[in-house]
Structure formats: structure tokens, C-alpha cells
């Protein structure tokens, strides 16, 4: 059982559990991707705890509080603080928060909620806030992964309810 089975309500001996294992490249590939965006070997200065906090926040924006709680736990284990806890809980950040952190959060919110409305100006804002190109890509991959994972869980959960 992995996080996706548990959060989708898939039972260990169920048909859907077996179907997922017929696609080991999906199951293992997703876990490998999770590692590369949440606990990468090279994080480009965006730490594991910040990544977990952003993941929890995005899961809440998507409406998967269960997924958010899994990332809350990851954040606790990585070592939380007031700012990270606020990010994870999907709260507004204080106006005096540093611009780098503000930029990470703003971009995660925007690309999770309304990716269709993103423009070049949103990438320029990241650069102005001090993100390097590798940081821009690492942030984008993290945001996209959580959006992918949440949709896989939503789909599998609905499928598990159908005969």
C-alpha cells in the first residue's frame, strides 16, 4: 500500500489494487517523481520543509485535506516553523514576509488554481523576487506534481466506488 492507495480508499486485496500493480511504471514512477520534487538530491536552495509546506497548501486549495495532512506530517518531520505552518495551512502570509517566500506561495496558488491565466509576467515576478532559473523549474515541477497526484487520487477514489 502506498500513499495513493490509502488516500484513494483502495483496499489491499481489491481489484483496483491489483490493477494498479499491473502498471508498475505508474506506481513506482509516481513515487520516484515524488522524491525528485519533495526530497530531491539537489534542491537548489528550496528546502525539503518548504516543499512539503507548499505541497500541503496546494492539496488544500485543490480540496484534498487528506493529501494535505500527509504533507503536514512530512513538514512536521522535516521541521516546521511559523511561516511554514502558515504556508501549509493555506493561510495568507503576513505582508512583511520576505519577497522570495511570497513569490513561491503566490506562484503555487496561481498555477494550482488558474494555470490558464498564467503569463510571462508571472515568471518575471519570480525572477525579480530572486529565483534562479533552476529554482523556477524546480518550483514548477513541484506544483505540477501535486496537481497530478491529487487528480490521480480523485479519479481512483471515484473508480473504487463503481462496480
Amino acid at each position: 500500500m502506498d500513499q495513493i492507495d490509502i488516500l484513494s480508499g483502495i483496499k489491499p486485496d481489491s481489484e483496483l489494487y491489483r490493477i494498479r500493480r499491473e502498471r508498475p511504471d505508474y506506481v513506482e514512477g509516481t513515487e520516484l517523481c515524488r522524491q525528485t520534487v519533495l526530497e530531491p538530491g539537489h534542491g537548489f536552495g528550496i528546502g525539503h520543509a518548504m516543499r512539503a509546506a507548499l505541497a500541503a497548501r496546494m492539496a488544500r486549495l485543490i480540496g484534498r485535506n487528506d493529501l494535505a495532512r500527509a504533507y503536514d506530517l512530512m513538514l512536521e518531520e522535516a521541521g516546521s516553523n511559523e511561516t511554514l505552518a502558515a504556508i501549509g495551512s493555506a493561510a495568507e502570509l503576513p505582508a512583511d514576509e520576505d519577497i522570495f517566500t511570497q513569490a513561491l506561495v503566490r506562484h503555487a496558488d496561481l498555477v494550482t488554481r488558474t494555470p490558464r491565466d498564467n503569463t510571462s509576467a508571472d515568471i518575471e515576478r519570480l525572477a525579480v523576487a530572486g529565483l534562479s532559473n533552476p529554482q523556477i523549474i524546480a518550483l514548477s515541477e513541484l506544483i505540477a506534481f501535486v496537481n497530478f497526484e491529487a487528480r490521480v487520487i480523485v479519479g481512483l477514489e471515484a473508480l473504487e466506488l463503481v462496480a
Binding site: L32, C33, P134, E141, F145
Partner: peptide, 10 residues
Amino acid sequence: AHDPESYVAR
């Protein structure tokens, strides 16, 4: 490829 690790896995 600015973040090669995530690129390869994805």
C-alpha cells in the same frame, strides 16, 4: 534540464 533530476523521473 535546469532541474535534471525531476526532468528524468517525469
